[in-house]
Design a protein around this nucleic acid. Structure first.
Lengths: 144, 144
DNA sequence: CTACAACCTGTGCGTTACACACAGGTCAAG
DNA sequence: CTTGACCTGTGTGTAACGCACAGGTTGTAG
């Protein structure tokens, strides 16, 4: 039987993360001491390791919860797992593209600003650097 | 004098976003009707357009708040603006890299899983697909 | 046996930038 | 006056923790 701290060490997870997973019901204590301390088995440690693996693969905690609940009922979560990853691959690709666009916008701005002096704000302008950036009228919104 | 909705149209911002900005004090109403409705001037509209520009460039709402507060006091925010963008460029580069690593992990996993059948979970295993993924013991943590 | 310090415990709140819901208010048409 | 469409402010929920706090536990010294 491990305490929270021991479970954290055993599963290579920060203790406060273990507590968070407990809070949201992603893991449950196997037992409880009289003073309220939660106790765990080595089974919980491997469960926790599974959770970290899934997170490392991009699954959200909610998805992991679904998966473990399915597994607990004896149903195979594999089909959902494949679908989720496929969806996440698309999602992530879009996000990366958006962040690369942002990156370019920022780099272009910084370069452009190199030739511009600092300015004192007046009633019309808050920061002429930011206001000088072009292309702010074309907002692209890509949904999931 | 505009209402929230009119200000939203004028500044090309969703109305619920305008309300959010009001809530966090990023913008303030110029006046108030007797029924509690908030009223704005065209000055507020251009302020809001500035906020959208800054967001488009990657500034957080907190940073924008700082910038506008500086500007309101007559101090030039330009120096901070340059520093923030420089910092954000580094930050974003790291994030993009991390997301590309994740992308590769996901794609490799999906490919690898193509040859694997679905499995029924037992006590030892939750989902053998996820558990089969290699390299889960080497966690990389890149800080800002 | 007691005093004290170091550490560990559960839990409440703060974070980002909205999205949604809800009860009530406003305005034009009939 | 009533109906319906729309608009208003505000409370709450989101993801995944990070931090802080008051109290409990454990080890060591005296």
């Amino acid at each position: 039987m491990f305490t929270v701290n021991e479970l954290a060490l055993e599963s290579d997870t920060p203790a406060h993360v273990v507590r968070y997973y407990l809070r949201i019901g992603l893991i449950q204590p196997a037992a409880q001491q009289e003073n309220g301390y939660r106790l765990f088995t080595s089974n919980d440690a491997s469960r926790l390791r599974f959770i970290r693996m899934a997170k490392h693969l991009g699954f959200t905690l909610n998805e992991i919860k679904q998966i473990t609940q399915h597994a607990e009922l004896g149903e195979s979560p594999c089909d959902d797992v494949r679908k989720i990853i496929q969806h996440r691959i698309h999602e992530n690709r879009a996000k990366i593209e958006e962040m690369m666009n942002l990156q370019e916008r920022m780099e272009q701005a910084l370069e452009q600003w190199d030739l511009m002096p600092d300015g004192i704000p007046d009633g019309n302008s808050v920061c002429h650097l930011i206001e000088s950036v072009e292309g702010s009228e074309g907002h692209c919104h890509t949904e999931t």
